[in-house]
Design a protein around this nucleic acid. Structure first.
Lengths: 342, 342
DNA sequence: AAAACAACTGTAATCGGTTACATTGCGAGT
DNA sequence: ACTCGCAATGTAACCGATTACAGTTGTTTT
């Protein structure tokens, strides 16, 4: 009876083994791989034969070390399980892969400690730069050292560094304009946390629309959530119990809108007959919610692509054509909105 | 007027700079960082002072290169935007971070080419191992070379290597048992693609339950989807147009169930009064769908944690206590199921 | 025929850590 | 007094690639 120990006698070969077998120098092997046009056809063939023979795989760790580049970017995201972020990340990863970079995942769970750990990865050269998916307020943005290449792709304003974003204020105004055009005058808001940049911008848009239509702002119509379904579900209770109920609700993201619709329906409201509900982001569930949700679509794919391109330019020292890039949003009307009841 | 060029004169310092400033050898600096107990308090203090003075950050690229370890694992996933996978990934990343490993994201979009590119990352040492989130059939599993550490965490059976999974067959049987106990006899299935391992296992469970209850299997009750909401929506039409309609539908995941409910409701079915619907996975939307979905919850957090632990053990050469780990599922009854109409 | 040039190749230094091994100094055991 | 053991430290080799520089051809120019 034999014990199968050490079955793999480490056939791991390096560039010198290849050089020896191909009877050329290591420089020639290296060139054959990265600058084949500088190597004679004869040598090239010998090198390739040797590589095949040894099933040689270049050690990228050594290559990266030598070139002082990790060929990796870190994506810092508050919560990967959030469908809006994961869509984004898919686009980022796709682009990075195309350009020969790897994506390191950095889920911060919203804690600054985690964030620091990830920033340290760039400082210790494990990553070449950061894509920030966190909506950062002025103060929090500063924890990223100035020499760390970073692009903010959270989509909101008031960031200091390079950024890809949408015009949250305009998009929100457009949505509320639409509700007003349907005859709604008492429009509830389910907001994100008060100091969240997205919430600030979108609330400004809401106020813009109200002002333009001559509707006075009523702070009782603002319910605070935290962008989770659960918080939307709770926030909606505030409206159910009002004496003069709103006829429409502008939720600052789709998840809260879906949560809110749950509450409203179970409290006897018909959507959209009794009350209209709108979302923001156009996550995939928005189309399949009951009723399907009128919302604003962010070009996540496009934003991810552009953000990655921008970061890679910074990393490779190319000049940036623009510090900030504002992308258009799409307004999507579905079944959750209707003219106000007479 | 001055142009601000070269403001950062690269203060990048290495271990030799630190050694010089602290007046010790590089070995002592290295030890001070990785084995401080082997360094005298005096030297330790000098080293730390020098590190602070130079704001030295060790070059992990060099460290990893020397130790021939990337301290990174690649997570290979068919689609990061799938909420079930993203939950999983969050758990994986959390665990990896704890153990000092980075997570490289590898979204394959289901293509074997992409998969090969990611496998190459391990072969070229950019990652130390792979967590496979793809349900792999026998043949497809083989593209991973035997010397690449890999743990399959997709949760299904019949994988050759180490795996974390649930008992899909048993869970499916339990769900169908429950429907039968409610009096349902004609139970439709919305399946995944015919050769998907999850679909195969869960269908087996469905048949087990039918057989035990003495209900004959009717292949017309099987509608094929591909685990997307859209496919669930379409699959449900097959049941709406039947002469003798099913009184319950067992969908093989939540997303298809949510899509199906959409179709059923718009075709005048009341859920659960006219027809019961069940899902699988317990994604976060299952709780907020209309009606909330009876489903099976997989312990994604736990599975992710265990899978990562298993992989890291393999990478670090520790023996595995078990090749396979089967975790229990939870059966969650919500509002989408009810006794069959009299 | 000599010089200039191009195309190809090889030698060896280099990146920034880790660590085997050698060395030193000091206290304890005999 | 001598040896031994131990802790602390230093020297230098090493990991596997890239690449500057030098060298060797063979071809073209003058």
């Amino acid at each position: 009876m034999t014990l199968a120990i050490n079955q793999n006698p480490k056939p791991m070969s390096n560039i010198r083994d290849v050089a020896r077998l191909a009877d050329v120098s290591v420089a020639t092997v290296s060139r054959a791989l990265s600058n084949p046009e500088k190597v004679s056809p004869g040598s090239l063939a010998k090198v390739h034969a040797a590589i095949a023979e040894l099933s040689y795989k270049p050690n990228m760790l050594a290559r990266n070390f030598r070139s002082a580049r990790a060929y990796a970017v870190l994506v810092m995201v508050p919560d990967i399980a959030n469908p809006f972020y994961s869509l984004f990340i898919r686009a980022l990863e796709d682009r990075a892969q195309q350009k020969g970079y790897a994506v390191l995942l950095g889920d911060t769970r919203g804690t600054p400690e985690r964030e620091l750990e990830y920033i340290r990865r760039v400082e210790t050269r494990l990553a070449d730069g950061i894509i920030q998916l966190r909506p950062s307020s002025e103060k929090s943005q500063n924890i990223i050292p100035p020499d760390v290449p970073c692009v903010n792709a959270c989509g909101c304003e008031f960031t200091s560094g390079p950024a890809i974003r949408i015009d949250n204020r305009k998009a929100a105004k457009m949505m509320v304009d639409y509700l007003i055009s349907l005859g709604h005058k008492r429009i509830g808001v389910i907001s994100g946390l008060r100091d969240n940049p997205h919430a600030i911008d979108r609330l400004a848009g809401y106020k813009d629309a109200l002002e333009e239509a001559g509707i006075p702002f009523d702070k009782d119509l603002i319910a605070e959530g935290d962008f989770t379904m659960w918080s939307g579900l709770n926030a909606a209770f505030q409206f159910c119990n009002m004496d003069v109920k709103p006829t429409a609700i502008f939720s600052m993201n789709d998840e809260m809108a879906i949560g809110a619709m749950q509450t409203l329906k179970s409290n006897g409201f018909r959507i959209p007959e009794d009350i209209s509900v709108t979302g923001f982001d156009d996550i995939s569930y928005a189309k399949y919610s009951d009723p399907s949700l009128t919302t604003i679509s962010q070009p996540a794919e496009e934003m991810g692509k552009l953000a990655m391109d921008m970061l890679l330019k910074m990393i490779e020292g190319e000049p940036l054509s623009q510090r900030e890039c504002v992308l258009p949003t799409e307004f999507i009307i579905r079944k959750s909105t209707a003219p106000v009841k007479k």
